[in-house]
Computed example of a mutant assay.
Amino acid sequence: MHSFDAFLREKRIINEMAGRMGKPELFRSDFDAYRRPAGFGFLIRPTRAEFSSFCLLLDQLLSDDLSRDFFRGDLVLDERGRMDDGREIVQLKGTIRLLDEWLDENFQTDDADFKRDVLTGFRTVRQARQRPAHLIEDNVFDESYYQRQRELIRAAYMSVRTLRQCFATHPRCRNVEVPDWLFEGRIWAQ
């Protein structure tokens, strides 16, 4: 199976597992391989504009797609502070930070790299999105965008795969069916 389809399937399974755990779905969207969002596939032309659009869409499907409702009741969703004049400031925590805190609170493992493996893809995709969101650049043609896209979708897939494996350790999730090709990681990105 292709990494685009595997990414979407992992998210659906994670949502099923969240329900089994008695929680709201972690991801708000529910796409599958046969109903992908427009533009969620290989680049047609390796241009900066197409790559930037893909980065934005992937971040919308990953970090921006995390539901705050999943964390409600387990974590404080905002931070409070005071301005110099004494007024209170309330700022929502970012979704990646919420996921980081939730993993700290809810999953213990001997694998020191586990949390890093989950969060790396989220942060890599967010960083890839940040640059085009804050700069105006010429739309250059560069075949390296093909490889960069594959690396980015692979990082996102590995994050959701590791997260699904984490959820699978919950006693209520042990019987959630995961297709063999996904369980074994038989994914290609070319």
Rank of each mutant, 00 (worst) to 15 (best):
G185K: 02
I153E: 02
H170N: 10
L99N: 09
S63P: 09
R154E: 14
Q130L: 05
D78G: 05
R28A: 13
D64W: 13
A168L: 09
F70G: 09
D138P: 00
G121T: 12
D59H: 15
F71R: 11
E16I: 06
R116W: 14
Y34E: 15
C173P: 01
R164F: 04
E79Y: 11
F114I: 07
K115N: 00
D59E: 15
S144G: 09
M17H: 10
S63T: 13
V118K: 05
V118I: 15
V140Q: 11
R174A: 06
E101W: 04
I13V: 05
D5H: 10
P171F: 09
T162D: 06
K93N: 12
L77I: 06
R161A: 00
R172H: 06
D32R: 03
R12N: 04
K93E: 15
I14Q: 05
F122H: 15
R80G: 05
D180M: 05
S53H: 13
D117P: 04
D78I: 05
M83G: 08
Q108R: 07
A128H: 15
V140L: 03
D142W: 11
V118L: 11
D78F: 10
Y34P: 02
L92M: 10
P179L: 07
L163T: 08
E16P: 01
R48A: 01
T124E: 12
R68P: 01
G185Y: 02
G19L: 12
R154K: 15
T47Q: 14
R126H: 10
D111V: 00
M17D: 03
R150S: 14
E10M: 05
A156H: 04
F4E: 08
D138S: 08
K93C: 12
R9C: 04
Q130M: 10
M83Q: 05
I136W: 13
K93I: 13
D111K: 02
F40L: 10
L56M: 09
F4L: 04
T124V: 08
W102T: 01
R35G: 13
L62N: 08
D142A: 04
D138N: 09
T169A: 11
M158V: 02
E151W: 07
H2V: 00
T47D: 09
A189V: 12
F107H: 06
R97N: 08
R35D: 15
S144I: 07
V118F: 14
A189T: 13
L135N: 03
F114L: 08
I89G: 11
D113K: 11
F51S: 01
F27T: 01
G19H: 06
G39K: 07
R87G: 14
P171Q: 06
S53E: 12
F70Y: 14
F4I: 03
Q130P: 04
A6S: 13
T124R: 14
R82Q: 12
H2L: 07
V160E: 13
R164Y: 07
F71V: 03
P24L: 02
L56G: 02
Y146R: 01
E101S: 01
S63Q: 15
E50L: 00
G81I: 01
F31L: 11
E79N: 10
D84S: 07
A38D: 13
L103E: 03
R48K: 11
R72F: 07
L26A: 02
N106R: 03
D59G: 03
R87E: 15
F141M: 04
M83P: 00
S67C: 07
K115I: 05
L103K: 06
A128I: 04
R72L: 11
D142N: 12
Q91P: 02
R35P: 07
G39H: 12
Q127K: 15
F167V: 03
F141G: 00
